[in-house]
């Protein structure tokens, strides 16, 4: 019986590591702002003063919370 439990744990572990991987990629993408590849982010969006960098900050915060919400929902469905 413990083998089937371990299989279930492995599935959950993969889920945990996948979400962590996505999170880390998003998290470290913020450092692009300090590289040549992130030059475009410094420009203002449309006629506003809001730059791509500032928008990226807010979107990353929201993306992290969204990821956590999805993770919670998947965990709940998994329990059912």
């Amino acid at each position: 019986m413990i083998d089937s439990s371990i299989d279930a744990v492995h599935r959950k572990t993969r889920l945990r590591l996948s979400f962590s991987g996505i999170h880390l990629v998003l998290y470290f993408s913020f450092s692009l702002n300090w590289t040549q590849w992130g030059q475009g982010l410094r420009s203002a969006i449309g006629a506003t003063e809001i730059t791509g960098s500032l928008l990226m900050f807010v979107l990353l915060v929201l993306a992290f919370i969204t990821l956590e919400t999805i993770f919670m929902m998947l965990s709940r469905w998994g329990r059912r």
């Binding site: 945990r16 979400f19 962590s20 999170h23 998290y27 913020f30 900050f57 992290f64 956590e68 993770f71």
Partner: peptide
């Protein structure tokens, strides 16, 4: 904007705490 690196740095820990 540079000051925000500390905000995101600190906030980024919580999803990892939850996932892992």
């Amino acid at each position: 904007f540079d000051g925000l690196i500390l905000s995101l740095g600190a906030f980024g820990a919580w999803p990892i705490l939850m996932f892992l």
